[in-house]
Nucleic acid binder design. Structure first.
Ligand SMILES: NC(=O)c1ccc[n+]([C@@H]2O[C@H](COP(=O)([O-])OP(=O)(O)OC[C@H]3O[C@@H](n4cnc5c(N)ncnc54)[C@H](O)[C@@H]3O)[C@@H](O)[C@H]2O)c1
Ligand SMILES: NC(=O)c1ccc[n+]([C@@H]2O[C@H](COP(=O)([O-])OP(=O)(O)OC[C@H]3O[C@@H](n4cnc5c(N)ncnc54)[C@H](O)[C@@H]3O)[C@@H](O)[C@H]2O)c1
Lengths: 214, 214
DNA sequence: TCCTCCTTGTGATAATTCTAACATATATTG
DNA sequence: CAATATATGTTAGAATTATCACAAGGAGGA
């Protein structure tokens, strides 16, 4: 599906570069070099240029990159020129934190619905949305075109929820529960495991690994 | 500092394996094969065995791995046999979610203190802890041996907080703000960037990348 | 004891990803 | 307009990481 296989690490870095460029834009900077991007994103200049090179040349030799132009290009590569519509299932601590967070909408991800099965939580207003009964989720998905489902519920219930939305048009699932889930072929699944970060840190500290954060 | 360089990806997987083994333990399973571990953690059996092989042989040929024994070994490798003491700075949406989460303490990470600079939040009780004034953080760190600082505050304030705890014994920083921070050499910094996950997903969906999630 | 079955541990190989170096293009200065 | 300085784009090579294939160890049955 692609001429050259592009490293996922490159895509992840593009996302970081783009948000760095946002800050530059806001600061009125209009040109940056690969070295400056590297410094601002804990990367290195060769890596930055290589990452861009996968998609063609965005810069001017001897000069650098036009901040606005480069950022527009990256966002287009990432598919952020369209609006992605998402729901959050499980309005506990983490679900609420995500629902209140405005950082996603500024990147093109719009939270369209919030669901929970706890009567205490149903009806609660969170920001501009009201938590809906988990039972109406299927109907909601029939009536609204939703791309992404964010799962913030206990591990043991995630698979059941995934099964229920089968064929309802969900294209990607962002799963915060520490468990493997299975969806139909073609559905993107990404697992976010916060404990892993702490445990890798524990390992590094225990074994005195000095990650050269440069 | 190590004989062989062990891939960070291996360490991250060990964390996932270990939590899968926790579930097996709870279910009363006493032996697992690399294939079963692979299935339960979205890995593959060769990878699982290779990961273990970095640290020696934990299994019995023809039989598999003793669940309890293997899990104990992994936890020791990860440094989870000791208690890690952490504080959270920034008790907004995300900070609260982390503070209420009990999943970390069961892995050996104990939240010792919560800090914020918003008078509205100072004094608020969260679980068993009370949010303290950010101003007393240095004193708190002098009086308590804290290993890890979790940062859940707006990007623009993170570096200032990091600077203030310099030399106070913090060994690792888990940063949720989307910005690069600098700490003295030897301090582990790990950045958790949730937006990256969504944006990589956006890229994959846009370009019809079918990540074979086994 | 010998034979069969099963699953690990591992060395060889393949694939992926990063790093370094430099030729090329652009701007600027005198 | 030539000379110089600067930063990109790209190619080649190094390093890291994952996959494969199979020999060897161990259990159990005849
Ligand atoms: N909070 C954190 O900091 C954190 C960190 C790492 C991982 N996680 C994971 O994220 C998930 C959520 O964590 P949390 O702390 O928000 O938990 P929580 O218990 O606060 O929230 C879970 C919510 O899911 C709802 N729920 C349960 N079953 C449901 C169903 N079938 N349909 C709809 N809603 C349902 C519950 O009513 C509850 O509101 C868990 O899997 C947890 O392991 C959380
Ligand atoms: N909430 C999310 O889902 C989410 C997702 C991705 C990234 N993040 C990042 O995590 C961070 C926190 O997000 P949030 O949604 O919890 O924000 P928030 O605004 O709800 O919370 C931030 C908290 O930090 C406190 N604070 C500010 N300056 C401080 C200081 N100097 N010392 C102590 N406390 C201070 C504020 O009083 C507030 O309580 C942000 O950087 C955000 O970009 C959050």
């Amino acid at each position: 599906m692609k001429k050259v296989k592009i490293p996922e690490a490159t895509i992840a870095r593009l996302s970081v570069y783009s948000r760095f460029l946002n800050r530059m834009e806001k600061n009125g900077v209009d040109t940056v070099s690969s070295g400056e991007i590297a410094k601002g994103t804990a990367s290195n200049s060769a890596q930055v240029r290589k990452d861009f090179a996968y998609f063609g040349g965005f810069g001017k030799r001897g000069v650098g990159y036009d901040v606005i132009d480069l950022n527009r290009n990256i966002k287009e590569i990432l598919g952020l020129n369209k609006e992605w519509r998402a729901i959050i299932v499980g309005m506990g601590n983490l679900g609420k934190a995500l629902a209140y967070y405005h950082g996603f909408s500024t990147r093109g991800f719009k939270i369209m619905g919030l669901f929970d099965n706890d009567p205490q939580k149903i009806g609660e207003k969170i920001d501009t949305l009201t938590v809906q009964d988990d039972q109406v989720m299927e109907k909601f998905l029939d009536n609204n075109e939703i791309d992404i489902m964010i799962l913030t519920l206990p591990a043991e219930y995630t698979q059941a929820v995934v099964d229920r939305v089968e064929g309802k048009g969900i294209k990607g699932i962002l799963n915060f529960a520490p468990t493997v889930i299975h969806a139909s072929e073609g559905t993107q699944i990404r697992n976010v495991d916060l404990a892993v970060h702490l445990e890798v840190m524990s390992y590094n500290l225990t074994h005195s690994i000095n990650k050269e954060q440069e």
